[in-house]
Amino acid sequence: MISKEEVLKLAELARLKIGDGEVEGLQKDISSILEYVGQVSAVQPQGETFLSDSKDSPFGLHTVMREDLPRLASGKAGVPTPVLGEREALLNAFPTREGDFNVVRKIIQKDE
């Protein structure tokens, strides 16, 4: 079973605050899920790869590239159009809006 410290470390890495009362349950749940998915350790790769630059790869995935240019919703290069929302709607989604600014925490502090 994974330890209490491991659960707390995972929560920290995942930027999740979890309650003291939850740790034990998470230890149990995550351990039993890991035990189940651990079946994959028996898999021997047989040269099939997940991602290949060939369209004929067994997985069929290939890297999709486009020209490094702004593009229209039509997919053609050109002047970009605001396809993912108008400016005002995006500004309104800010948790704390002041004028046209998003208020965020000051992250650079003066040395004491």
């Binding site: 659960v7 995972l10 929560a11 890495l13 995942a14 999740l16 998470l26 995550i30 899920i33 890991l34 998915v37 651990g38 994959v40 350790s41 898999v43 790769p45 047989q46 099939e48 790869t49 997940f50 067994p58 997985f59 069929g60």
Partner: peptide, 28 residues
């Protein structure tokens, strides 16, 4: 999210995620 964080963390990546994507190619 925590499970995903676990299987992608440096010490476990090959054992879980690496194996899983190999098995996925076989299944396909």
């Amino acid at each position: 999210i925590m499970l995903g964080t676990y299987v992608l963390s440096a010490g476990y990546y090959d054992a879980y995620y690496g194996k899983a994507i190999a098995a996925r190619a076989l299944l396909r």
